[in-house]
Design a protein around this nucleic acid. Structure first.
Lengths: 173, 173
DNA sequence: CGATATTTGATATGGTCCATAACAATTATC
DNA sequence: GATAATTGTTATGGACCATATCAAATATCG
């Protein structure tokens, strides 16, 4: 747990608190022992998640999409005509916090709120043409720059196994 | 991404936004399609991480230890005599944010800051006797209630493979 | 029908965590 | 011995999360 987020600038680079050298000249305090920490599920899970998000943001820099925004666009595309409550709750976002998020996407003309004719309380969500185009580009970036990197690192089979196990944890733990 | 934290109370239970029934009587809008989202590494990683932390907190309720606090105690035990900067940076915690965390642990008499005689700027960190005792109990709880659950869910071999892959991501991604 | 309850989107607000700047005390460097 | 660097700390702002509350619209039920 307890790892930084951005890591774009100085931050802290956990694993090598005492620089990444092997045995340079200066005395230099030796590295700390992680011990049982490196076997702790939560610890390594959090670390991995931060790294993945960080990489995601880098890949998406040109489109300025966060993981959360990307997930909203994906879900709206797959389920057009749903209202805010449905989209938000499916993603585990609380309705109050979803408002500002939609304000952002809508101000960038990526999606739109449409007053429902059936139930004039609710806002139907749809992707704009620009939203569809941006999402298409985002998908390509994710596939070629982000997910592909996992394959390089773990191999196709392991990558699928990993996703499967994480899904199981997310759903059944 | 974008999933809640506590999940103790109402929150949002992502997967079943429309309740967990199969096909009850009422019309009831059908569930949303996750689509490609369920294959997104970041999405499933974040989901899993939240679930694991949530479970960790439940297991530790009697000791009132968060994942971050647990990691600090583990690291201080394994590396006694180190100062705040060393412990914090190894965990990826920024020094300013580590102060309040230590204030908490110290006020509960779990660890202590000792002014170093070599360098009177730095505070050497050590576990108190109570801290050692609490950490020992915490380890048992984690092993029997937390990590054991992963074995039940994935099996020993898969659990180890998972930790290995996550470590690889955390270190090499 | 009409009173009451529920739902939807929204606002306000507080908590937690993360990040940066700046400071005093101490130590290192030159 | 003057200057720079380090350590712990404070102050502060941002991002994200959670709760209470509201008005408008709808549902429910007597």
């Amino acid at each position: 747990m307890t790892v930084s987020k951005t890591a774009e600038k100085s931050s802290e680079k956990p694993a090598d608190a005492a620089k990444g050298r092997k045995d340079a000249g200066e005395p230099q305090a030796e590295a700390l022992q992680l011990g049982e920490l490196s076997e702790q599920l939560g610890y390594v899970l959090k670390r991995a998640q931060l790294k993945v998000f960080e990489n995601f943001l880098r890949c998406m820099a040109s489109l300025q999409l966060t993981p959360a925004q990307f997930s909203v666009l994906l879900l709206v595309e797959k389920n057009p005509g749903r209202n805010q409550t449905e989209i938000a709750s499916t993603l585990g976002i609380l309705r109050p916090n979803f408002v500002a998020m939609l304000d952002n996407l809508e101000s960038r003309d990526l999606c739109a709120r449409i007053r429902s004719t059936n139930d004039r309380r609710s806002h139907i969500l749809v992707l704009t043409d620009k939203g569809k185009a941006v999402l298409a580009r985002a998908k390509k970036l994710v596939a070629t720059k982000h997910e592909a990197r996992l394959n390089d690192l773990l191999g196709q089979a392991n990558r699928e196994a990993l996703i499967g196990m994480l899904s199981k944890i997310a759903n059944e733990f």
